[in-house]
Design a protein around this nucleic acid. Structure first.
Lengths: 172, 172
DNA sequence: CGAAAGTCGCTGACGTATCAGCAAACCTAT
DNA sequence: ATAGGTTTGCTGATACGTCAGCGACTTTCG
């Protein structure tokens, strides 16, 4: 790092536009979720819960959304206070804690999910043609991989039929 | 919003990659700043301060980085406690407050800036060829404009010669 | 002039994210 | 079986962002 290579005008233009795009997406998504009474963090927790059988170990839930134990413990405490989830001691491993969706929690995620996906689509995908999609996918995967970010597993395949469809999320 | 249009596999692939890219960039930038002892918020405040004459009105500083008054007031309080900035009553408008960079603050931003730009370049621009750059710029501007986000003014042109070069930032 | 309206910066409350650290439970190797 | 290390989940401290609201000041307009 002898001489800093400052950004040229094209690069600066991209950087600022990139930041604006991020912000626009966040504002749209967070605002839509707020209308549904959920924070982005709530959504990240509720989505995998609703897709799974009903209960998840805190450890697994955390791994699924790429959070550390502390963060999810705080979040679960607040969500439990609001009646969105409940915790119960695990069966086999007595260290473990199971997180269950309450009826209120299930109602909330089911109500919020369609608008959420719709918002993601409207703010991002509706602006992209097929070529944009390929280009952006290539760039995003390249940048993420080059940074060596351990790809958060997330749930992977399509949601099981019969469970609430709650794909996206934002994992803050 | 009759029937939610869920993401297809290509779209989901892009969305997840996009999230990973964002996260990778944040991790890289925040980590580099943390090594320099600054938070992203610190950087956003210090950068325009170091580029301006030396002092800015709180109002103008906030407008420059697109923050509301409350947020910047909290941030300035914390930064003043750490000795990065000082506040003084304004001259003409007695409602106003002037924010000054301290020597410590100037040292901090000057030390952090080269690594910051270097990090932005390494994590993003070094992964893009000329075509990627054009494509991503087009997409980002389109998405941001479509969302109708009031483009934060930011400082605009290149930094004045003679002042610390501290372009990027992330305005969280 | 003087009242109404607007601007400015600050504060307290609350939700959130990260860090360090803890206690209980578990696992492994002797 | 048991000592040492690991995993799990939690907590407290601190920093950050947003919201509602306040007091001081300035501007506007009758």
């Amino acid at each position: 790092m002898t001489q800093p290579r400052w950004l040229n005008s094209e690069e600066e233009r991209l950087w600022l536009a990139f930041l604006r795009m991020r912000r626009a997406i966040d504002v749209a998504i967070d605002g839509q979720l707020a209308e549904a009474g959920l924070s982005p963090a709530d959504y990240d927790v509720l989505a995998p819960l609703s897709q799974s059988g009903e209960a998840l170990r805190v450890r697994d839930l955390a791994a699924l959304i790429g959070w550390d134990r502390s963060r999810i413990a705080h979040q679960l405490r607040r969500m439990e206070q609001r009646g969105l989830v409940v915790r119960s001691g695990s069966t086999t491993d007595r260290r473990g804690t199971l997180v269950h969706l309450t009826d209120l929690g299930r109602t909330a995620i089911t109500a919020a999910a369609p608008g959420h996906v719709e918002t993601v689509r409207r703010v991002l995908f509706d602006q992209l043609d097929q070529q944009d999609l390929a280009c952006l996918t290539s760039i995003a995967e390249r940048v993420a991989d080059a940074a060596g970010l351990t790809g958060i597993s997330r749930t992977g395949g399509p949601a099981r039929p019969g469970t609430a469809q709650v794909r996206p999320g934002r994992e803050s």
